[in-house]
Design a protein around this nucleic acid. Structure first.
Length: 364
DNA sequence: GCAGTACCTCCATC
DNA sequence: AGATGGAGGTACT
């Protein structure tokens, strides 16, 4: 078992990357935030991140059996972690120049009654390059659902069907389960129903089955090199994947940066903020309206319209925290009033270390 | 094709 | 306190 051996850093400004916003705007559901450290699992390790005004700090903890502290191993692991971060956060893409373009377009197309610009208020929001399989399952879970519950479902998938990696600061970490893990037995569907997945249990099981039989994860991954149209129709073969979910996967895992997934929310933004002509009380989105909105945003924001949309979406979200960040804290045995939030903010990590016995994990 | 409705569960709101 | 409806939809008729 290791301590926080070493933290390395990548120089990056908050305008290029806002960890908090990117990881809580509803594109990924599996990052934990404990005492201001973000953690996530990949195949063979836990990745840890922290951010300040100048740098993104990163560290990692290898799978228990793979811990190797030789200098050569550390150096290799460092490179691998760095490669993951650069790839996962799409860091080769310059966000600041994209924002500049979007701000100009925004002024040309926005409803003049709307004051201010989301692109001024919400900096550093970028689209991640997620694993296609994980994105598929995550977004199948997202139908008729909210961020908090989707996060819980993803966590349940990991603890129930993932592989144990290691324990960091008292928290056990598991990998996201593979398609094989989720198709091993028909009991999977039953178990997922017990875990509260509802009708999505069947979708997940059937999708895992299909991707380990007729279709394959290799094909799914190769859609990164395919056209949007081909990718979209391939994804529609999967149970529980409709047009909206397929577009989410295209944008967030398959490098289709121009695709704007349209839900009722985005529909409302289009009408309210961008003068899109449509009925405000539309009950069910039909195919034509769906595609019209998608194309409309693409016309406004261009090649990276999907990225621009995530900024609009974030600025419209009331609670980006979604109640899922965790803070370890001392439970103060005092009368807790409505100022509880401020009190919590002030109780810092230093105090906590002294009183292990009283530690609890509390939803912020 | 197209529109309407059932589907699981949680949880804020009334 | 208990009911109601919405939550970044999809499958089925």
């Amino acid at each position: 078992m290791t301590v926080d051996t070493l933290w390395n850093k990548i120089k990056i400004s908050p305008a290029e990357l806002s960890l908090e916003k990117v990881l809580r705007c509803g594109q990924t559901f599996r990052w934990k935030n404990i005492n201001n450290t973000w953690s996530f699992t990949i195949e063979d390790r836990i990745v840890l991140l922290k951010q300040d005004e100048e740098n993104l700090h990163y560290s990692w903890l290898m799978k228990e059996l793979l811990v190797d502290s030789s200098a050569a191993a550390i150096s290799r692991q460092n490179n691998e972690t760095l490669n993951f971060i650069n790839d996962y956060f799409n860091l080769s893409i310059n966000l600041t120049s994209l924002y500049k373009h979007w701000m100009i377009q925004n002024e040309n197309y926005k409803n003049k009654k709307i004051l201010g610009s989301p692109f001024t208020k919400f900096k550093g929001i970028r689209i991640l390059r997620q694993d296609p399989w994980e994105a598929t399952i995550s977004f199948i879970c997202s139908s008729n659902n909210n961020v908090k519950r989707i996060s819980k479902m993803c966590e349940n998938l990991c603890t129930e069907y993932g592989t144990y990696l290691n324990t960091y600061k008292g928290v056990d970490y598991f990998t996201f389960p593979s398609a094989k893990d989720l198709s091993s037995s028909p009991n999977v569907e039953t178990k997922l129903r017990e875990l509260g997945f509802g009708y999505r249990a069947k979708y997940i099981y059937q999708t895992a089955r299909l991707l380990t039989s007729t279709l394959s994860i290799k094909e799914l991954n190769s859609l990164r090199e395919s056209s949007y149209e081909d990718s979209h129709s391939y994804l529609l073969q999967l149970t529980g994947v409709g047009p909206k979910v397929a577009d989410c996967i295209c944008l967030m895992a398959l490098d289709k940066h121009d695709i704007v997934p349209v839900d009722t929310h985005v529909y409302q933004i289009a009408i309210r903020d961008y003068k899109f002509k449509g009925k405000k009380d539309l009950k069910t989105m039909n195919k034509k309206v769906y595609e019209d909105i998608r194309e409309y945003f693409k016309e406004i924001f261009g090649e990276y319209a999907g990225w621009a949309q995530s900024v609009l979406f974030a600025s419209d979200l009331s609670d980006m925290n979604n109640g899922i960040n965790v803070k370890e804290e001392v439970i103060v045995e005092a009368k807790i009033t409505s100022t509880v939030v401020d009190i919590k903010e002030e109780i810092s990590t230093e105090i906590i270390i002294e009183s292990d016995s009283k530690r609890r994990r509390v939803r912020k």
